[in-house]
């Protein structure tokens, strides 16, 4: 396992934006699955979901979160050196969300605008790229992470998926210690979770990936390290809880999937934002996993 480090970076803040429409997942399950509704609800643990309406996009939601974040922190937009956008459902196939965000947010023409096509593993990847930019530019960098994935749902994903956008601001800070990252990819298993017109998922395959490969990645990464908070991707609530239990992190687990659904990689940003809003400070272990198949972990100071 390669462990990458980026020092001299501080997390200034995280915000998220959700679609206006909240869906009662029991109603969805009863409508779609009839007698099997309770099975779906019990195994996913998802009680409510946020679903985008026409016109609500990954970019729009992420920019909404960014405007709120930059406004709250009173950041001069001309000081921002980079924008990194993570999404597998960008507003347009081309140009990407990062380029569109430069104009929509009114950032300078000299920003490094970088798009990452990543699914549920994306937040640690985006954080690594954004942190590296901060280190190299010595300027604030904005990380946007969001997806509107519900339009691509099939019968086996319709009752778990939600939509969201998020914004994370990283700034230079010479006193900050090293953030650490590790990544894992097995592209030979791409067919187990892919967007090919519709979101296609092999439930058994993806579960096996999380239960075996992701557990191994995180457990190996955490050898000799400690975390005060664990924010995993919220594929479903059962999986998040069991992953935390297996890693002896159950008492430090952030859960948000029950009230928003599976928000793809933004679920990690949302979990982190809610923990910070609740006063969290300390070492946060962030874990994303999904399409690729791929996974990423980050241990950062909050």
């Amino acid at each position: 396992m390669n462990v990458l480090q980026v020092a001299g970076v501080k997390l200034a803040g995280v915000r998220f934006a959700l679609p206006k429409r909240e869906v009662d997942n029991r109603e969805t399950c009863q409508l779609l699955f009839g007698d099997k509704a309770e099975s779906i609800l019990k195994t996913s643990g998802i009680l409510k979901r946020r679903v985008a309406d026409k016109g609500e996009t990954s970019l729009g939601l992420s920019c909404q979160a960014a405007e709120e974040l930059l406004g709250t922190l009173a950041v001069d937009k001309t000081t921002i050196g980079g924008v990194v956008a993570v999404s597998f459902t960008p507003e347009l196939a081309m140009p990407g969300n990062a380029q569109l965000a430069q104009a929509r947010l009114g950032l300078g023409n000299d920003v490094a605008a970088i798009d990452l096509n990543h699914a549920c593993a994306g937040y640690p990847y985006g954080l690594y790229v954004a942190a590296s930019l901060v280190r190299d530019l010595q300027k604030p960098v904005l990380l946007l992470d969001g997806d509107v994935q519900t339009p691509y749902a099939t019968m086996n994903t319709a009752a778990i998926l939600g939509d969201a956008g998020s914004a994370t601001l990283l700034v230079p800070d010479h006193d900050s210690g090293a953030w650490e990252f590790a990544f894992y990819t097995d592209g030979s298993r791409a067919g187990e979770l892919k967007l090919d017109g519709k979101l296609v998922m092999d439930g058994f395959g993806v579960f096996r990936f999380v239960a075996i490969d992701v557990v191994k990645l995180i457990a190996g990464f955490m050898q000799g390290r400690k975390a005060d908070l664990f924010v995993p991707h919220q594929a479903n609530v059962y999986m998040a809880r069991e992953l935390a239990r297996k890693l002896d992190l159950a008492d430090r687990l952030a859960i948000i999937g029950d009230k928003y659904g599976n928000l793809a990689s933004a679920s990690v940003a949302v979990g982190l934002a809610e923990a910070m809003a609740g006063g969290f400070g300390g070492k946060a272990l962030l874990a994303g996993f999904g399409g690729g198949l791929s996974a990423g972990v980050a241990l950062i100071d909050v």
């Binding site: 099997k36 099975s39 779906i40 019990k42 195994t43 086996n156 092999d202 439930g203 058994f204 579960f207 059962y238």
Partner: peptide
Amino acid sequence: WDSVMHLRLVL
């Protein structure tokens, strides 16, 4: 016995 039912059986 699909993947959802698999987890239901576990629970």
